[in-house]
Design a protein around this nucleic acid. Structure first.
Lengths: 189, 189
DNA sequence: CGGTTATCGCAAGTCGACTTGCGTTAGGAG
DNA sequence: CTCCTAACGCAAGTCGACTTGCGATAACCG
């Protein structure tokens, strides 16, 4: 076992461990044993535990960033953030949100984390763009601000509230933000 | 040195260490030495490092939660969150926001963290209440949702973006949220 | 198919968080 | 002022993250 095969095995073992015992009790010694390789190989390739966790979580989540297109900004935003809320409510999702934060001052993890979110944000940006071309959204609206604001709500729930966040909250938040974005609204921006 | 005096000395040493070498390089052995007490005393009283850090940060920040009252919801919100943004941009502030996240699955820290934020949120809630009684804010508005949404924006910036967040962003975010709250707005709820 | 080399296995060790058992003393109760 | 007990000092040890030096080999290259 070496190279790409080893990497795949370790990543798979990492995800398996996170999902079975939680991210806290995921020892790299256990991962190594489960992957059938030596502990040292992990440290030489990933350097630190946070990096391995982020790499595993990132690789495991890369797929499936469905950006809805229902013809309504409101519905698109609700769908998108309901999906995100669902993901963030799973053990893996919560682990990812919190786990990336744990890294603290690690430049590598910092970069990976930023990349992950900015990618998601920019992809979701088309929701706002389509809405604007449809006349649903005011011209001066900053897509990034809207997305970060909505995303921040989910984020603070996971990291500081701990509560599962009812679906109604997403709808309410979208409406809250949306009514300030509608073309007919008085002073949006 | 014992009891309350010991506690004060340890807390002071902890803050000093955080501010001089950063939260990452703050060893409890160093804190013990700086406070002139033994390492064991810290572990017996605080149990874990995160708990000590949170306690120190919390005690050190307890004061000064100024809730503005300018007569305008918009200005009140801008002032409040600009202050919060400033705090969160300081080393201690960022350490607190991120540090509380580090705690992960510790019930004690979880509780302290929740208490900290809910206290702030509830205190700031009067801003919305005053606004509603003034007719600036729609009746159906959920103060908590608004506060968490705005707070979440700051939070995601600190934890995932890392950027200092320009003052304009606070203003824009307040306007974004506010225009969905105004009594004249169509569907705020 | 033989040679090169980066990658891996293995052992031994560092470092910091955290625990435990026991002796000692501060500091309040009476 | 004396006694009592919870709080502290100290030593020794556990555990997991992370490092390092060296021998072994898998995998690509020719």
């Amino acid at each position: 076992m070496r190279g790409a095969r080893l990497r795949a095995a370790v990543l798979e073992a990492t995800i398996a461990r996170i999902e079975s015992v939680g991210i806290e009790d995921t020892r790299i010694a256990d991962i190594a044993q489960m992957a059938g390789i030596h502990e040292t190989s992990i440290y030489r390739r990933w350097k630190t535990r946070p990096r391995l966790l982020v790499d595993a979580l990132l690789t495991h989540t890369e797929r499936s960033v469905p950006v809805p297109d229902t013809g309504s900004v409101r519905q698109d935003l609700i769908d998108f953030f309901t999906d995100l809320a669902a993901f963030v409510s799973t053990p893996t999702g919560a682990a990812f949100v919190r786990g990336t934060v744990v890294s603290e001052t690690d430049p590598e993890v910092e970069a990976a984390r930023r990349e992950f979110w900015t990618e998601r944000i920019s992809k979701a940006g088309v929701i706002l763009d389509r809405g604007r071309s449809r006349g649903e959204v005011a011209d001066g609206t900053d897509p990034e601000l809207v997305l970060f604001t909505l995303g921040g709500l989910l984020h603070i729930y996971v990291t500081h509230i701990g509560a599962p966040l009812p679906e109604a909250t997403v709808v309410n938040a979208v409406d809250l933000v949306l009514d300030g974005m509608k073309a007919g609204a008085p002073s949006a921006g």
